[in-house]
Design a binder for these strands. Structure first.
Length: 793
DNA sequence: ACTAATAACATTTTT
DNA sequence: TGTTATTAGT
């Protein structure tokens, strides 16, 4: 039963308005999922049949969560019959049914990103292009962007903007690559991720009768995370909703952080133009975070223009300000965070699972892993290689794919010689040549090498045929053997099992466990399907359909195991934690260097920071380091300019590891979380700045000695005036004055740690003044003159 | 045809 | 620094 009393007025209005289009702007933590689930329950209660409701999400996780929550409100029988899932899974399902209308078979393969890239690479090579100039990843990104905008290869060739852009990036032949790639996918009976949307749109626009059928089916459409839709998704929703105009989209423009994947924030910003009369509902009460956290996030995001105006507020306690702290190095940063977590757990009875460390890039996780491990704090790193991306799993699945669709070129390439069966590079090249010459897929040649002009020896041809026979024998079982049984058979007869079970190294064991897990998962899949849908729905085809659109098996989020979560800000979206550490808050890292060229990109980085802050319920710590190892080299960094975007009244600038010293600080940690004494750092005020700190072991020697051991010796808080740089890397300057005199380009210096070198460039003014120095022994480095210890020769 | 060595390289990544 | 892809060597 739907109890509308559970909702606040804004939520209730959004739930009960069902007669036309509506846009629900849901601020962070405002109960977005709640509105979606209640709305679906409400529609069902109003008498709408579940199969007339289409609910689209971006992740399987979101879809599952919604399903579960709805099942709690209405009977699960009904919940089962909803059309609910990710864009890709719902439309892949429809495409399988309608496959022949777009010239594919219902057994089509879904190429993942790696498959696409690999195929693009082979096409680039076949065209005789230089793959340094045409980097497969870059080309793939261009093609993907085109597809996201529904630009076909033909349209691409005539699109002045695309052509110009490709010429500018010295890749004029991308349009050819795109055309060949599309043809090759078709030949392999394969769709990539983007194609699922592209061909859905094509299906509906080329076959009005089919479109009408689905328009007729979906009486109400709901879309989650609308700010993350790309143009193709936006257009498909329009195809299905145009006639009835009965849809509700939910999202938050302030949390749009996937433009690099083709998401277009304009879709949500201009929703009311496309759907005139669309009702706008704003969910502005944040139920997650304290007033301070919400206030800080608001003050930050105000610096972005072009957003839907809203005022998110909280009725929770004020809580503590955001704690911002600087450290001398990334190592110290990690150590201090780990130490602080240790204390929170020990003295404040915080569970580790209530804490998250969020960073901009995956590479940052290592330092924190080391620091946490040192203190014996349990942690869990999210992201990284997912189960289905591991080699042994991909190999196994490639066999499955071949069994269902032997034309799957990428699967064939992957396992034709794994385990090794004497089909080497030369043979493969000959097969590829013959296939291209004859205009067929490589499988045709492998299956019948004698019929093509391959120049392959008799013995090798026999190996090819043996492989083809093997695949055909698997294929013969596809329609009448369940996925798990066939899977075990393939594992044995392909030789993969004995290959993997040969080794005794720890990593071999892990591969064996993975294979075992895969097969177990297949058993589970078959059992579930047998119960729910009957045995003919548990075939390999169905298994692959499911598996190729899933990236995360490892979401077995055992709340039982208490671990600190480590993840990128991106993967934290949608999650919440009592205590959040946002680390590496430095210019060129966050905002990332790659995203500083345009305002658009910079604003997306700012939204990313917004997402990070709003993950926190109670406490938010922000840290940065003045020195950081990047690509194996130590580099200087400055605090992120985003820090100065947050209103000062929400921030406490301090060292988390010195918390006990600061009991006098207004709103200090005692207010909410009596952070215990913990620091091995005392806190003293350095003479040159009221806000510079010194370690407990004061530097005894000269400047040189001090700098020779920077770690743990001395660090500056961002209190040091101006340390929060507004912009990175200022303009070139002619000279800079240092304590020892004037530094010019060409000056020779001796650095305490790096030795002798000469200045090649000077940039920045005042506290941001930097020198680029070419050192005799250690290469080029940037020195921040405010901190660098050296003498001018 | 496989392994070892080396060079190039490097955001984020729901599907 | 750490991975990944190509190349050289056996």
């Amino acid at each position: 039963m739907v109890n509308l009393q559970d909702l606040n007025p804004a939520q209730r209005e959004a739930v009960t308005y069902c007669d036309g289009p509506s846009l629900v702007i849901a601020g962070a933590g405002s109960g977005k999922t709640r509105v979606l689930t209640y709305k679906i329950a409400y529609l069902l209660e109003q008498g709408m049949a579940p199969w007339n409701i289409l609910a689209l999400t971006f992740t399987n996780k979101a879809a599952d969560e919604m399903k579960n929550r709805i099942a709690r409100q209405v009977d699960s029988e009904k919940a089962q019959r909803l059309w609910m899932g990710t864009f890709h899974s719902v439309f892949a399902r429809i495409l399988r049914i309608e496959a022949t209308s777009i010239g594919f078979t219902s057994n089509f393969t879904i190429y993942d990103a790696a498959d696409s890239k690999s195929l693009i690479k082979t096409i680039i090579r076949e065209m005789g292009l230089d793959d340094k100039q045409y980097k497969p990843a870059t080309v793939a990104a261009h093609i993907s962007a085109a597809k996201n905008r529904l630009v076909s290869p033909e349209a691409y060739a005539h699109d002045i903007t695309c052509i110009r852009a490709d010429q500018a990036s010295r890749m004029p032949q991308i349009t050819d690559i795109y055309a060949r790639y599309a043809a090759r996918c078709r030949q392999a009976d394969a769709l990539d991720f983007d194609d699922i949307l592209v061909y859905t749109y094509a299906l509906f626009s080329q076959h009005p009768d089919i479109r009408a059928r689905y328009e007729d089916r979906f009486h109400f459409i709901l879309v989650d995370e609308y700010q993350d839709t790309n143009f193709a998704q936006h257009a498909i929703v329009w195809q299905l909703a145009e006639h009835r105009q009965r849809l509700a989209v939910v999202g938050d423009d302030a949390q749009s952080i996937y433009s690099f994947r083709g998401a277009n924030i304009d879709n949500i910003l201009s929703f009311q133009k496309l759907y005139p009369g669309a009702k706008l509902f704003k969910l502005e009460q944040n139920y997650r975070s304290t007033k301070n956290i919400v206030g800080a996030a608001n003050s930050l995001i105000r610096h972005n223009k072009g957003q839907i105006p809203k005022e998110v507020f909280s009725e929770k306690p004020d809580g503590q300000p955001l704690h911002v702290s600087g450290f001398m190095s990334d190592i110290e940063e990690a150590a201090a965070v780990a130490k602080h977590i240790h204390n929170l757990c020990d003295y404040d009875h915080v569970g580790c699972h209530e804490i998250a460390i969020l960073y901009r890039t995956n590479a940052q996780s290592r330092t924190f892993e080391d620091a946490l491990r040192k203190l014996g704090i349990p942690y869990r790193v999210f992201g990284g290689l997912s189960f289905y991306q591991r080699k042994e799993i991909k190999d196994m699945i490639a066999y499955f794919r071949l069994a269902v669709n032997p034309n799957d070129e990428e699967a064939l390439r992957r396992v034709i010689n794994y385990p090794a069966r004497g089909i080497g590079q030369t043979t493969l090249q000959k097969v590829a040549d013959a296939a291209v010459a004859a205009g067929v897929g490589p499988w045709q040649v492998v299956a019948d090498p004698d019929s093509y002009n391959t120049g392959i020896s008799k013995a090798t041809a026999a190996k090819l045929m043996a492989f083809a026979d093997l695949i055909r024998s698997f294929a013969a079982d596809v329609t009448h053997t369940d996925a798990a049984t066939l899977g075990r058979r393939i594992a044995k007869e392909s030789g993969m099992e004995s290959e993997i079970f040969r080794g005794r190294e720890p990593e071999d064991i892990s591969r064996q466990e993975n294979l075992q897990e895969l097969l177990n998962g297949m058993n589970q899949f078959v059992d579930e399907r047998n119960e729910e849908d009957g045995p003919d729905r548990a075939l390999m085809t169905h298994y692959l359909q499911e598996v190729s659109l899933i990236s995360d098996l490892e979401e077995s989020n055992d709340d039982s195991d208490e671990k600190v979560s480590l993840m990128t800000v991106h993967s934290a979206k949608g999650l919440e934690f009592r205590i959040v550490f946002i680390v590496g808050m430095e210019e060129n890292l966050f905002p990332n260097q790659m995203a500083t060229s345009s305002l658009r990109e910079l604003e997306e980085e700012r939204r990313l920071f917004y997402v990070a802050i709003t993950r926190a319920e109670e406490l938010c710590y922000i840290t940065f380091a003045m020195n950081r190892y990047r690509y194996g080299k130590q580099e200087f960094s400055t605090p992120s300019s985003f820090l100065s975007d947050i209103d000062d009244k929400f921030i406490l600038k301090r060292d988390p590891s010195a918390s006990r010293q600061s009991s006098s600080d207004a709103g200090g940690p005692r207010a909410m979380s009596p952070t215990p004494p913990m620091s091995r750092f005392g806190r003293k005020t350095a003479p040159e700045s009221p806000f510079a700190y010194r370690s407990k072991t004061p530097p005894t020697g000269s400047h040189a000695e001090n700098a020779a051991q920077p770690s743990g010796s001395r660090w500056h808080s961002i209190f040091s005036s101006g340390a929060v740089a507004a912009t990175p890397g200022g303009k070139s300057v002619e000279s800079a004055t240092t304590a020892q005199g004037t530094l010019r380009v060409g000056s020779v210096i001796v650095h305490a740690r790096f030795g002798r070198g000469h200045v090649t460039a000077l940039t920045g003014q005042g506290v941001d003044a930097k020198a680029t120095v070419e050192f005799d022994n250690v290469g080029s480095k940037q020195l921040l003159l405010r901190f660098a210890k050296f003498t001018i020769v």
